[in-house]
Amino acid sequence: MKVGRKLWAIIFIKLFIMFAILKVFFFPDYLQTNFTNDEERAAHVFKNITRLSQNK
């Protein structure tokens, strides 16, 4: 079935682009990458959400 082969090809190429390229090079988990433990992550988020002024 020709359409079946084409669809499998699209699925594999798409998953490769998503997980091997986009996720690895463009979508690092910000908190996982920049902080080593949950305490640091919580402190960072806390600092963000309690900052006094926002320049808009």
Partner: peptide, 19 residues
């Protein structure tokens, strides 16, 4: 087949853009 896993990209964005 073409739509599968397109939703996972939203989860990528949560971790990167909306930490």
């Amino acid at each position: 087949a073409i739509g599968v896993a397109t939703g996972i990209i939203l989860e990528f964005q949560f971790g990167t853009n909306w930490s």
